[in-house]
Amino acid sequence: MHEQIKINTEYITLGQFIKLINILESGGMVKAFLADVGVLVNGEMEHRRGRKLYPKDVVEIKDVGSFMVVN
């Protein structure tokens, strides 16, 4: 089961989302993490901080967990 993360806007960028779930402290850390490791968004590898996430999108972060965007 995915942990649900609520947003109050139409979408959220991947960089903002990672900061929202409190696994990395700064935007610089998020940028480096995505460049080096990346995450799965709806089953596809993603390295872009600006990737827009909409409700029902699923983000999987290795060794951290699985998260679903909800509104």
Rank of each mutant, 00 (worst) to 15 (best):
I61G: 01
A35E: 07
F33C: 07
R48K: 14
H47I: 01
I7F: 14
N71Q: 13
K56R: 08
K6P: 09
N22V: 02
H47P: 00
L20M: 13
K56N: 08
R51Y: 01
V30I: 10
S66P: 00
R48N: 11
N22S: 10
D63T: 07
G43M: 04
I18Q: 04
G43H: 04
V69S: 09
F17H: 11
S26P: 13
K52M: 14
K52S: 12
S66F: 03
E25A: 15
M68V: 10
E3Q: 13
I18K: 06
P55Y: 01
A35F: 03
K19G: 10
V39K: 08
I23M: 15
D63E: 13
R51Q: 06
V70R: 10
I5K: 15
E25F: 11
N8M: 13
K56F: 07
V30L: 02
N42R: 03
R51K: 15
L34C: 01
L53V: 07
E25M: 11
L34F: 02
V64T: 10
I23V: 15
E10P: 10
M45N: 02
G15S: 14
F17P: 12
L20Y: 09
K56V: 02
L34Q: 01
K62R: 08
N71F: 12
Y54W: 08
G28F: 08
G65K: 12
V64I: 15
K6L: 14
I7V: 12
S66T: 08
K31P: 02
E60L: 05
H2M: 09
Y11G: 01
S26V: 14
M45R: 04
K19S: 10
K31H: 04
V69M: 11
E60V: 09
L53F: 05
R49Q: 14
R49S: 10
V69I: 15
K56E: 06
K56M: 04
Y11A: 09
Q16P: 06
M45H: 01
V37E: 09
K62C: 00
I21G: 03
K52Q: 15
H47V: 01
K6C: 07
V59W: 02
G65A: 10
K52P: 08
E25L: 14
V69R: 09
Y11N: 10
M1G: 11
K6Y: 09
G28A: 06
D63P: 03
E3V: 14
E44G: 00
R49A: 04
V37R: 11
F17G: 13
G15E: 13
L20V: 05
L20Q: 12
F33P: 07
K52D: 07
I5C: 12
V39N: 05
D57R: 03
G28L: 05
K52E: 13
M68D: 00
K31D: 03
G50P: 08
R49N: 08
D63K: 14
G27C: 10
V69K: 09
N42L: 03
G65E: 10
N22H: 12
Q4Y: 09
I7K: 11
M29Q: 14
F33I: 07
I23D: 04
I5R: 13
V39G: 05
K19Y: 05
N71L: 14
H2Q: 06
E60K: 11
Q16K: 15
G27H: 07
R51C: 01
F17V: 13
T9Y: 06
F33K: 06
N8Y: 13
Y11Q: 08
V70L: 07
M29S: 11
E60Y: 01
E44D: 02
I61Y: 01
M1L: 03
